[in-house]
Design a binder for these strands. Sequence first.
DNA 1: CCCTGATTCGC
DNA 2: GCGAATCAGG
Length: 219
Amino acid sequence: MSWTEERIERLKAMWTEGATASQIADELGGVSRNAVIGKAHRLGLEARPSPVKPGEEKEHRSPAAAAPTPKPAPAERPAPRPAAAAAAPEQAAPAHPAPQRQRAQSDNIQYRSIGPGGFIRQGPGDQQAPIPPAPPRRLVPAKPSPEVADKTSLLDLNDRICKWPMGHPGEPDFHFCGNASNPGFPYCVEHCGVAYQAQLPRRDRRPPPPLPFGGPRVR
DNA sequence: CCCTGATTCGC
DNA sequence: GCGAATCAGG
Protein backbone atom coordinates (compact mmCIF):
# COMPACT_ATOMS: atom_id res chain seq x y z
CA MET A 1 0.00 0.00 0.00
CA SER A 2 1.38 3.35 -0.91
CA TRP A 3 1.02 6.75 0.60
CA THR A 4 -1.45 8.41 -1.63
CA GLU A 5 -2.49 11.96 -1.21
CA GLU A 6 -5.65 10.97 0.52
CA ARG A 7 -4.03 8.53 2.86
CA ILE A 8 -1.51 11.14 3.86
CA GLU A 9 -4.25 13.62 4.50
CA ARG A 10 -6.04 11.13 6.63
CA LEU A 11 -2.88 10.37 8.50
CA LYS A 12 -2.32 14.02 9.19
CA ALA A 13 -5.87 14.53 10.28
CA MET A 14 -5.90 11.63 12.67
CA TRP A 15 -2.42 12.29 13.95
CA THR A 16 -3.18 15.83 14.91
CA GLU A 17 -6.50 14.70 16.23
CA GLY A 18 -4.75 12.59 18.76
CA ALA A 19 -5.36 9.13 17.43
CA THR A 20 -2.61 6.68 18.19
CA ALA A 21 -0.39 5.32 15.51
CA SER A 22 -2.03 1.95 15.86
CA GLN A 23 -5.46 3.37 15.41
CA ILE A 24 -4.36 5.23 12.37
CA ALA A 25 -2.74 2.13 10.97
CA ASP A 26 -5.90 0.13 11.48
CA GLU A 27 -7.97 2.82 9.98
CA LEU A 28 -5.90 3.23 6.90
CA GLY A 29 -5.22 -0.41 6.51
CA GLY A 30 -2.31 -1.97 4.75
CA VAL A 31 0.23 -0.29 6.88
CA SER A 32 1.79 -1.02 10.19
CA ARG A 33 1.92 1.13 13.23
CA ASN A 34 5.59 1.70 12.54
CA ALA A 35 4.85 2.74 9.03
CA VAL A 36 2.47 5.34 10.32
CA ILE A 37 4.96 6.67 12.81
CA GLY A 38 7.70 6.67 10.26
CA LYS A 39 5.57 8.54 7.81
CA ALA A 40 4.42 10.99 10.39
CA HIS A 41 7.99 11.80 11.18
CA ARG A 42 8.95 12.21 7.61
CA LEU A 43 6.06 14.54 7.22
CA GLY A 44 7.40 16.49 10.10
CA LEU A 45 4.33 15.93 12.18
CA GLU A 46 5.75 14.66 15.43
CA ALA A 47 5.64 16.81 18.54
CA ARG A 48 3.02 14.70 20.14
CA PRO A 49 2.97 13.67 23.71
CA SER A 50 4.89 10.49 23.76
CA PRO A 51 4.78 8.04 26.57
CA VAL A 52 8.50 7.95 26.28
CA LYS A 53 10.48 10.68 27.86
CA PRO A 54 8.78 13.80 26.65
CA GLY A 55 11.33 16.34 27.59
CA GLU A 56 14.60 14.68 28.23
CA GLU A 57 17.17 13.50 25.83
CA LYS A 58 16.60 10.16 24.41
CA GLU A 59 19.46 8.19 23.13
CA HIS A 60 18.91 4.56 22.95
CA ARG A 61 20.76 2.82 20.32
CA SER A 62 24.14 1.51 20.99
CA PRO A 63 25.34 -0.58 18.07
CA ALA A 64 27.00 1.93 15.89
CA ALA A 65 28.51 5.09 17.10
CA ALA A 66 25.61 7.17 18.15
CA ALA A 67 25.65 10.23 16.05
CA PRO A 68 25.87 13.13 18.43
CA THR A 69 23.29 15.09 16.59
CA PRO A 70 21.31 16.89 19.19
CA LYS A 71 17.94 17.34 17.77
CA PRO A 72 16.45 20.58 18.96
CA ALA A 73 13.71 19.58 21.26
CA PRO A 74 10.49 20.48 19.52
CA ALA A 75 8.53 23.03 21.36
CA GLU A 76 6.29 21.27 23.72
CA ARG A 77 2.87 21.41 22.30
CA PRO A 78 -0.10 20.08 24.12
CA ALA A 79 -2.16 17.82 22.00
CA PRO A 80 -4.64 19.96 20.22
CA ARG A 81 -8.03 19.51 21.63
CA PRO A 82 -10.16 18.45 18.76
CA ALA A 83 -12.77 21.06 18.34
CA ALA A 84 -15.06 18.51 16.92
CA ALA A 85 -14.78 16.37 19.96
CA ALA A 86 -15.34 19.23 22.25
CA ALA A 87 -18.45 20.20 20.48
CA ALA A 88 -19.90 16.92 19.50
CA PRO A 89 -22.44 15.42 21.77
CA GLU A 90 -20.44 12.38 22.50
CA GLN A 91 -23.49 10.38 23.00
CA ALA A 92 -23.43 9.36 19.47
CA ALA A 93 -20.68 7.16 18.39
CA PRO A 94 -22.45 5.57 15.55
CA ALA A 95 -19.87 3.77 13.78
CA HIS A 96 -16.58 2.88 12.52
CA PRO A 97 -15.31 0.76 9.69
CA ALA A 98 -12.19 -0.66 11.17
CA PRO A 99 -12.09 -2.76 14.26
CA GLN A 100 -12.19 -0.21 16.94
CA ARG A 101 -9.42 -0.34 19.42
CA GLN A 102 -10.86 -1.20 22.71
CA ARG A 103 -8.03 -1.03 25.08
CA ALA A 104 -8.81 -1.56 28.64
CA GLN A 105 -6.05 0.32 30.23
CA SER A 106 -6.26 1.64 33.68
CA ASP A 107 -7.00 5.29 33.36
CA ASN A 108 -6.40 5.74 29.76
CA ILE A 109 -8.32 8.05 27.62
CA GLN A 110 -9.40 6.57 24.39
CA TYR A 111 -9.97 8.31 21.20
CA ARG A 112 -12.90 6.77 19.55
CA SER A 113 -13.65 7.71 16.08
CA ILE A 114 -17.09 9.08 15.76
CA GLY A 115 -16.74 9.61 12.13
CA PRO A 116 -14.59 11.48 9.72
CA GLY A 117 -12.37 13.93 11.38
CA GLY A 118 -14.21 13.37 14.55
CA PHE A 119 -12.88 11.77 17.63
CA ILE A 120 -14.10 11.85 21.10
CA ARG A 121 -11.97 11.48 24.09
CA GLN A 122 -13.36 8.84 26.26
CA GLY A 123 -12.25 7.72 29.62
CA PRO A 124 -13.17 4.33 30.95
CA GLY A 125 -15.86 5.71 33.15
CA ASP A 126 -17.70 7.91 30.81
CA GLN A 127 -19.13 5.49 28.42
CA GLN A 128 -21.88 7.77 27.46
CA ALA A 129 -21.59 10.61 29.84
CA PRO A 130 -24.27 13.07 29.05
CA ILE A 131 -23.13 16.36 27.77
CA PRO A 132 -25.65 18.81 29.08
CA PRO A 133 -24.50 21.94 27.32
CA ALA A 134 -26.17 22.20 24.01
CA PRO A 135 -23.95 21.65 21.03
CA PRO A 136 -22.70 24.98 19.83
CA ARG A 137 -23.28 23.97 16.33
CA ARG A 138 -26.06 22.55 14.36
CA LEU A 139 -25.52 20.01 11.71
CA VAL A 140 -26.50 21.15 8.34
CA PRO A 141 -29.10 19.22 6.44
CA ALA A 142 -27.60 16.70 4.12
CA LYS A 143 -28.57 18.44 1.00
CA PRO A 144 -26.26 19.61 -1.72
CA SER A 145 -26.19 23.28 -2.21
CA PRO A 146 -28.06 24.58 -5.19
CA GLU A 147 -24.87 25.35 -7.01
CA VAL A 148 -23.66 21.84 -7.06
CA ALA A 149 -27.10 20.46 -7.42
CA ASP A 150 -26.70 20.72 -11.11
CA LYS A 151 -24.33 17.86 -11.30
CA THR A 152 -20.81 17.50 -10.24
CA SER A 153 -19.21 15.42 -12.88
CA LEU A 154 -16.33 13.08 -12.63
CA LEU A 155 -14.11 15.76 -14.04
CA ASP A 156 -15.06 18.11 -11.29
CA LEU A 157 -13.72 15.87 -8.63
CA ASN A 158 -10.76 16.88 -6.58
CA ASP A 159 -9.59 16.21 -3.09
CA ARG A 160 -11.56 19.09 -1.75
CA ILE A 161 -15.02 18.07 -2.74
CA CYS A 162 -17.23 15.23 -1.76
CA LYS A 163 -16.99 12.27 -4.08
CA TRP A 164 -20.14 10.64 -2.89
CA PRO A 165 -21.99 9.25 -5.85
CA MET A 166 -25.52 10.46 -6.37
CA GLY A 167 -27.66 8.11 -8.29
CA HIS A 168 -26.15 5.25 -10.19
CA PRO A 169 -23.40 5.12 -12.76
CA GLY A 170 -24.85 4.91 -16.20
CA GLU A 171 -27.90 6.89 -15.41
CA PRO A 172 -28.16 10.17 -17.21
CA ASP A 173 -28.21 12.23 -14.07
CA PHE A 174 -25.49 10.38 -12.27
CA HIS A 175 -23.22 12.79 -10.51
CA PHE A 176 -21.31 13.36 -7.33
CA CYS A 177 -22.26 15.16 -4.19
CA GLY A 178 -19.80 17.93 -4.74
CA ASN A 179 -20.05 19.51 -1.35
CA ALA A 180 -16.91 20.53 0.44
CA SER A 181 -15.23 17.43 1.69
CA ASN A 182 -14.26 16.91 5.23
CA PRO A 183 -10.55 17.65 5.32
CA GLY A 184 -8.67 14.43 5.08
CA PHE A 185 -11.59 12.48 3.83
CA PRO A 186 -13.05 11.86 0.44
CA TYR A 187 -16.54 12.83 1.43
CA CYS A 188 -18.35 15.70 2.93
CA VAL A 189 -19.37 15.56 6.53
CA GLU A 190 -22.78 14.20 5.82
CA HIS A 191 -21.62 11.43 3.59
CA CYS A 192 -18.72 10.58 5.81
CA GLY A 193 -21.36 9.86 8.37
CA VAL A 194 -22.84 7.37 6.00
CA ALA A 195 -19.64 5.97 4.60
CA TYR A 196 -17.88 5.26 7.80
CA GLN A 197 -20.44 3.19 9.52
CA ALA A 198 -19.90 0.00 11.25
CA GLN A 199 -21.19 -1.51 14.33
CA LEU A 200 -19.65 -1.12 17.66
CA PRO A 201 -19.47 -4.00 20.02
CA ARG A 202 -22.94 -4.79 21.24
CA ARG A 203 -22.26 -3.48 24.67
CA ASP A 204 -21.24 -0.17 23.31
CA ARG A 205 -24.22 0.34 21.15
CA ARG A 206 -26.98 2.63 21.99
CA PRO A 207 -30.39 2.80 20.44
CA PRO A 208 -30.74 6.18 18.82
CA PRO A 209 -27.49 7.95 18.25
CA PRO A 210 -28.22 11.32 16.71
CA LEU A 211 -25.22 11.46 14.42
CA PRO A 212 -22.81 14.11 15.37
CA PHE A 213 -19.57 13.02 13.85
CA GLY A 214 -17.19 15.81 14.21
CA GLY A 215 -18.99 18.32 12.22
CA PRO A 216 -17.68 20.51 9.51
CA ARG A 217 -14.36 21.99 10.09
CA VAL A 218 -13.30 25.06 8.31
CA ARG A 219 -9.88 25.20 6.87
C1' DC B 1 2.99 -8.89 29.29
C1' DC B 2 0.25 -5.12 27.07
C1' DC B 3 0.68 -0.63 25.10
C1' DT B 4 2.90 3.95 23.43
C1' DG B 5 6.11 6.86 20.23
C1' DA B 6 11.24 7.42 18.56
C1' DT B 7 15.03 6.04 16.05
C1' DT B 8 17.96 3.53 13.07
C1' DC B 9 19.21 1.61 8.93
C1' DG B 10 18.84 -1.76 5.05
C1' DC B 11 16.23 -1.76 1.25
C1' DG C 1 11.03 7.37 0.86
C1' DC C 2 9.64 3.35 3.23
C1' DG C 3 9.01 0.45 7.26
C1' DA C 4 10.77 -3.66 10.20
C1' DA C 5 13.47 -4.00 14.00
C1' DT C 6 14.62 -2.16 17.90
C1' DC C 7 14.66 0.83 21.83
C1' DA C 8 12.72 3.18 25.83
C1' DG C 9 9.08 4.33 28.77
C1' DG C 10 4.10 3.78 30.90
